[in-house]
């Protein structure tokens, strides 16, 4: 806690990494400020040092190779929603980013990196990225390290902190035949989600070849449901299968969150409803395109 904080704006990743290694626990990394500034304005946090990574060019930009889309963590939500490489190759992510609350100002300032490192269970980006099996690249004193977002989520309890910098988000492009859906249940337009479900489905003819669901806002961490859904593979989707997926996903919620948006019993049930509705959205795309054809 400091009344007279210091401010540093490193020019490159090496400087930033060295600086962070030299600092004690009172430092914060700041970029878009949408996560940290409300805490600071409210007096909840009084950091000793602000390390502003907003000036590091290496953390910017989106580049798409054939087998991988690389997203700089400083990419703001508005760009995630609109940049061609993402809209075309990762439409699920672009769509989920549109569901982020707070309005235009937040979308223009808030970054995908900030959204990920906060590890906040109510946020929209993580379910989409986990459904897409995204990976991340981190830089610390020990050097650069690549791991799945799922692993990172398992490792950290209170966000990424200042021990390392998120340097890249890496996602395999979705194939044109991948069906996807995202359903965000929120009590009103200004509320955080109470159940956010992202679904990615591959079909083999009529039959479900693979399905992967990621559910946010229901527990402390985003829950990925895939193996549990194996029993629905190889057959076609039906409303019975939908209800079964709903139940499986609801059952996957161990200790549901309970807050003013809704209690745990409801939250657990809604996780299932959101998953089923996201699945229906995904399969609805198929119906729409086949009806067009």
């Amino acid at each position: 806690m400091s009344l007279h904080p210091m401010y540093a704006r490193p020019r490159n990743l090496e400087q930033a990494s060295e600086l962070l290694a030299s600092l004690s626990s009172g430092a914060v990394i700041i970029a878009g400020g949408q996560e940290i500034m409300p805490y600071i304005n409210y007096g909840v946090m009084m950091p000793d040092v602000y390390v502003d990574i907003g000036g590091i060019d290496a953390l910017r930009g989106v580049s798409a190779e054939t087998d991988e889309v690389s997203i700089g963590p400083l990419t703001v939500h508005r760009d995630i929603q609109n940049v061609e490489e993402i809209v075309e190759r990762l439409p699920l992510l672009a769509y989920a980013a549109k569901q982020i609350g707070g309005g235009m100002q937040v979308h223009n300032r808030g970054t995908i990196g900030g959204n990920i490192v906060a590890m906040h269970p109510l946020y929209d980006v993580a379910p989409a990225l986990l459904a897409l099996e995204a990976e991340v690249e981190l830089l610390s004193e020990k050097g650069s390290q690549r791991m799945s977002l799922s692993e990172l989520q398992d490792l950290s309890n209170h966000g990424l902190g200042t021990s390392s910098i998120l340097t890249k988000i890496l996602v395999k492009p979705m194939s044109p035949t991948t069906l996807w859906g995202y359903y965000k249940l929120k009590n009103s337009a200004g509320a955080y989600g109470s159940a956010n479900a992202a679904v990615v489905i591959q079909l083999d003819g009529e039959n479900i070849k693979s399905i992967r669901v990621a559910i946010g806002a229901a527990t402390e961490k985003v829950v990925v449901v895939s193996g549990n859904l194996d029993s629905y593979l190889g057959g076609p989707y039906s409303s019975e299968v939908g209800l079964a997926i709903q139940k499986t996903c609801s059952d996957a919620i161990g200790e549901p969150l309970s807050d003013q948006q809704g209690d745990g019993v409801w939250r657990k049930a809604m996780a299932g409803v959101a998953a089923r509705r996201a699945t229906e959205m995904a399969l609805g795309k198929l119906n729409n395109s086949s009806s067009k054809g």
Partner: peptide, 28 residues
């Protein structure tokens, strides 16, 4: 629909910001 200032059983305020005290928006 949504606006509710809640207290716990000990009379401690739980609703402290617009994150929990959610007023309607234009879109609603």
């Amino acid at each position: 629909l949504t606006e509710d200032v809640q207290y716990d059983a000990n009379g401690v305020q739980l609703t402290k910001s617009f994150k929990d005290y959610v007023m309607l928006r234009m879109a609603d």
